[in-house]
Amino acid sequence: MSIAVPSAAPAARVQLVDLGPLAQLRAGRLPRRLVQLAVGLVAYGVSLAMMVAGGIGLAPWDVLHSGFVEHVPMTLGQAVVLFSFVVLLAWIPLREKPGVATVANAVVVGLSADAALAVLPTPDALAWRVALMVGGVVLCGLATALYIGAQLGRGPRDGLMTGLHRRTGISLRAVRTAIEVSVVLIGLVLGGVAGVGTVIYALAIGPLAQWMLPWFLVDLAPRR
């Protein structure tokens, strides 16, 4: 998968490239990319916690996570970590290749979500709840652009989507919709939290991440 992103010079283009794990580490600018990845994943966990604190709907996968923790002695962040590794098992038949971001995503997002939930207030006023939800969606778009722009691989759920697309030939949009509808329905059956925020997230996260990605996409082109 390669996305051309215009830069300041018309002839120069920064590419989002699909590299194997070793190639990711050898591609250059590694310190900057690792820092960017870490910031993005922590911000992703915080954005999840903000939507939980807002209480008016979670992202589709988090509807599933919130429903799951209703039945097991586990925090939401721990459920995020658990399901990340469960999803990684599906990568095996899909022949997806994990990267640095794959493992980091599986662990850091859940841990940072729990840490943020420990300090975030849960306001009663609707205005504050809406602000937390909207802020969470925007921060998630920023976090997605940061960690994808680091060019260190896909997260578990992103890899599931791209793997199914590659193996079935079904469009990415259709695969993503099918996955997210499925996890929301399962989450609701388990008692998960869905609402207006879920719909807003589903509609906004793609455009937000695409808009912000050029700001953070690290150029891995060889220097001359």
Rank of each mutant, 00 (worst) to 15 (best):
T75C: 00
L208V: 13
I56P: 09
L220R: 06
V137N: 07
W128G: 14
T122G: 03
L30Y: 03
L146D: 02
W61E: 04
L111N: 05
A11N: 15
Q210W: 03
G187A: 03
L160S: 07
A11S: 15
V108T: 13
V39Q: 04
A59C: 00
H165Q: 15
L146K: 02
A127R: 14
V63W: 01
D114S: 02
A131H: 13
S84F: 07
R154C: 05
R26Q: 15
L48G: 11
D158W: 07
F85I: 10
A106P: 12
W128T: 09
V69Q: 00
S47N: 11
R129V: 09
R176P: 11
R224Q: 14
L146N: 08
T122S: 09
T122A: 14
V39K: 01
V134R: 11
P60C: 15
A174C: 02
G169Q: 10
V5S: 11
L48M: 13
A12Y: 06
M212A: 09
V5Y: 03
Y44T: 01
W211V: 07
T102V: 06
R223V: 02
L220P: 00
A178R: 03
Y44F: 12
R26G: 05
G99Q: 08
R32Q: 15
T177R: 02
L139W: 03
M50V: 05
V46P: 02
L25D: 12
V218L: 01
P121M: 12
W211I: 10
E180C: 06
A38F: 08
V189M: 11
L30V: 12
R154N: 12
H71T: 04
A143V: 08
R26C: 01
P98A: 10
V87L: 07
D219M: 09
L19V: 12
C140Q: 11
V130A: 15
R33C: 09
R173S: 14
P121W: 11
Q36N: 00
R166L: 10
G206W: 02
V69P: 00
L88K: 08
L64W: 01
V42I: 11
S47D: 08
F85V: 13
V35K: 04
S171Q: 04
G67N: 04
L120I: 06
G45T: 03
L19E: 09
I92S: 08
A23F: 10
G99N: 05
D62L: 01
Q15F: 08
A79R: 02
V183E: 12
V69Y: 04
A145D: 01
M1D: 05
I179Y: 04
P60K: 10
T168E: 10
A174R: 13
A143S: 14
H165K: 10
A143D: 06
D18P: 00
L94Y: 10
P31E: 07
M50W: 09
G57Y: 11
G55C: 09
M74G: 00
H165S: 13
A143Y: 04
A101W: 07
V199Y: 07
G192E: 01
A204K: 01
T102W: 09
